[in-house]
Amino acid sequence: MSIVRHIPTAPLVLGLAGLVPFVWGAVTILNPALADWGASALGPRFVGPYIQLFYGSVILSFMSGVLWGFATKTKGTRAAMGYALSVIPALWAFFMTGGGPVSAATNLMFGFAGLLLLDYAFSQWGLAPRWWMRLRLILTAVVVSCLAITIVY
Rank of each mutant, 00 (worst) to 15 (best):
M1S: 08
M1E: 02
I3W: 12
R5G: 13
H6A: 14
T9H: 04
L12I: 04
L12D: 03
L12Q: 02
V13F: 06
L14A: 12
G15N: 02
L16G: 02
L16E: 03
G18L: 06
G18C: 06
P21W: 10
F22A: 06
F22K: 03
V23Y: 01
V23A: 07
W24M: 11
W24N: 05
A26R: 00
A26K: 01
A26Y: 01
A26I: 02
T28Q: 05
L30N: 09
N31S: 08
P32H: 01
P32E: 03
L34V: 06
L34W: 04
L34R: 00
A35M: 12
A35S: 15
D36Y: 00
A39I: 09
S40F: 04
L42M: 15
P44D: 07
P44M: 03
P44S: 09
F46S: 06
F46W: 15
V47K: 06
V47H: 11
V47C: 11
V47P: 10
G48T: 06
I51S: 10
I51P: 10
L53Y: 03
L53C: 07
F54L: 08
S57N: 13
L60N: 09
L60S: 07
S61H: 11
W68N: 02
G69S: 09
F70N: 03
F70A: 06
F70V: 02
A71D: 05
A71G: 12
T72S: 13
T72R: 14
T72A: 09
T74P: 08
T77K: 15
R78Y: 04
A80Y: 06
M81L: 15
Y83V: 14
A84F: 15
A84S: 15
A84Y: 14
S86G: 12
I88W: 15
I88G: 09
I88E: 07
P89F: 03
P89H: 03
A90R: 09
L91Y: 12
W92T: 04
W92L: 07
A93C: 08
A93R: 04
F94N: 07
F94D: 02
F95L: 14
M96F: 05
M96E: 03
G98T: 11
G100V: 13
V102H: 14
V102G: 09
A104D: 13
A105G: 10
T106D: 03
N107I: 04
M109I: 13
F110V: 10
F110Q: 08
G111V: 07
A113S: 14
L117T: 05
L118W: 04
D119G: 05
Y120W: 15
Y120K: 09
A121L: 08
F122R: 00
F122L: 01
S123L: 03
Q124C: 02
Q124V: 08
W125L: 07
L127I: 04
L127Y: 06
L127T: 05
L127S: 01
A128T: 03
A128L: 01
A128R: 00
W131C: 10
W132P: 05
W132V: 01
R134L: 00
L137A: 11
I138E: 01
L139T: 03
T140P: 01
T140E: 00
V143L: 10
V144M: 06
S145K: 06
L147V: 06
A148M: 15
I151Q: 14
V152L: 15
V152G: 11
Y153I: 08
Y153P: 13
